[in-house]
């Protein structure tokens, strides 16, 4: 590529990212560099996750890692993330299971029937753009943070469980120790430190991709450009921010 082309590209980028232009123009490069390394600015981020169905091997390592990282009760009724196995038989029967959320993997298929297709689906809070759980919380104890993560304020939650009823994805539970709503935080304490969520860090096949939704050159954005993207229960108009590639129509 010629030098003129590079310049044109640079100028185009300046138009595309007016914030950066402003920052460079007003504060100068030194200040811009300083702010990059220092304080975490929530308003500069908008997080999302991609899940590549075709890469998930159903090992359940993400479920285990999530429970360890976030101190989720180990009993099999409380999950911030879990893995479901779908088996679609040639006669049209659909069988779904998630023994203990898939934390110990999956047993072999018992049925002798012919299988049409089968796959694993990791699930977690979708961190919806229009979160119904936030809509219904009577006191403002669950909320969407500036960086697009749906969080729960444990010190303010009254434990009415309306949010659990309102979530179409079964992503919430009542923590038996705090008696407040529990859910995935995208490992908020990790991502604000520049680390990946535990499930993403630990996934052996990198079936999960975490990143910025609004930035163009990220692995998440590349995956979303190159795959057929689906979200769960799109008709609910919750606008989920967990994007699945090649999701089967049977998945609910």
């Amino acid at each position: 590529m010629s030098k003129t082309y590079e310049r044109r590209e640079f100028l185009a980028d300046l138009v595309k990212f007016p914030c950066a232009t402003l920052l460079l123009g007003v504060s100068g490069p030194i200040k811009a560099l300083a702010s990059a390394g220092n304080e975490y600015q929530a308003s500069e981020h908008n997080y999302a996750m991609g899940v590549q169905i075709e890469k998930c091997i159903g090992c359940g390592k993400c479920v285990e890692a999530c429970k360890i990282e976030n101190d989720v009760p180990m009993e099999p009724y409380y999950f911030r993330t879990w893995v479901e196995r779908y088996i679609i038989y040639t006669d049209g029967e659909v069988s779904v299971d998630s023994p203990n959320g898939g934390i110990n993997g999956f047993p072999p298929v018992e049925s002798d029937k012919d299988i049409l297709r089968t796959f694993f689906v990791p699930k977690l809070c979708n961190h919806c753009e229009n979160p119904p759980c936030v809509q219904v919380c009577p006191v403002g104890a669950t909320f969407k943070s500036q960086d697009g993560v749906v969080l729960v304020d444990d010190d303010y939650c009254i434990g009415c469980r309306y949010c659990i009823q309102a979530c179409p994805y079964g992503a919430r539970f009542l923590d038996p120790r705090t008696h407040t709503a529990g859910k995935c935080t995208f490992c908020y304490h990790r991502i604000t430190e520049g680390l990946l969520p535990a499930c993403v860090e630990i996934c052996p096949t990198q079936a999960r991709i975490f990143g910025e939704l609004d930035k163009l050159s990220t692995p998440l954005n590349r995956m979303m450009r190159q795959s057929n993207i689906q979200v769960l229960k799109a008709h609910m108009n919750t606008e989920p921010k967990v994007f699945y590639s090649d999701l089967d129509g049977e998945v609910r």
Partner: peptide, 11 residues
């Protein structure tokens, strides 16, 4: 099949 978090009936 139920979602794993649905074992508990909340209301």
């Amino acid at each position: 099949f139920i979602y794993p978090n649905e074992a508990e009936l909340h209301w």
